[in-house]
Amino acid sequence: MSQQKVAIVGAGPAGLQAAATLVSLGVSVEIFERNGSPGGHLKQWHALFPHFQNATHALNPLLNGVKGITMHLGSKVSEISHNGNTWRLLSDDGLKYESDAVLLTTGFNLFDASRKEEYGYGVYPGVVTSAQLEEMFNGQRPWPFDKSLAAPKIGFVHCVGSRDVKCGNRFCSKVCCVTAVKQAIEIRKRFSDSAVTCFYMDLRMYGLGFEELYHEAQVNHQVQFIRGRLSEASPAVSGKIQVKAEDTLMGRPLKLTLDMLVLMVGMEPAVKLTAQNNHLALGKPGFGDGFMADRELNTPEYLQVTPGLFVAGACKGPASLPDTIQDAKAVSVDVYNFLKTKS
């Protein structure tokens, strides 16, 4: 078959992996990425659960795999349309591209923690997100408390913006529980006299090695796990944060003064597909708009009846890095088979 072309939207792990797989199958690929560099959220991450693998060790093979592939960085695709056998992409900067198939790997956005004003993100400097904590581990961001502090007290709030009907996100973001456990252990390793408390709804240790990590956090690292939601965070003396919660297992209210409060922000879809006349617009999702697996894939007007449009990775729903990479490989084979039947 003559070399057929696939446009990939998004250069996160899913997009990079899919590009490498498709090229190895003899398909011509071009990648469109709205940010200035590839790698998605992974490039800001420090270490990965459950084995504390260095994130750059996971990212580098993905970047090496796409060497020689044309990548349009800083190019935000705003619409795609289908005409006969040809797909047309249009980006905000006026770029046009035609291909035989389109693969959307648009990934996720982190939940904007300032939407939960009661936790004080953006109000008190000691309140940070889980992603910012990774940057602190990386040395890219200063710690919000004095590092020479003898025994810093640090709290983690699970499910910030996930499983939260009031925020329009009913779903579980899946990876935050084990991420919090991983980060709690890292804190305990870094600050040997620190005290770490996790506030959770319930812990979802679904993957291999996750439960073991949770056990290790309690037994070897004395991380406290309290089942209860935080009711509020308020300022205490000298930049500390006072949190109130209910220990629902003990059935009593709880008050703690912390040096840092980490909000485990969940995932939200980065892009919403909307059918407009004869094209699909890639827009900003609104309140309560779910992932593509929830909405667009089930909408018969497009995707399922539109041959040549494929979706992979975390834009379909919350996913861990290994899940995303495996999905990208699997969908790449679907794309390859589709191109083969077409030629």
Binding site: E117, E118, G120, V123, Y124, E232, A233, S234, P235
Partner: peptide, 9 residues
């Protein structure tokens, strides 16, 4: 006011 610290501040 407690769940709207920005207003209080």
């Amino acid at each position: 006011g407690r769940i709207n610290p920005k207003t209080t501040q």
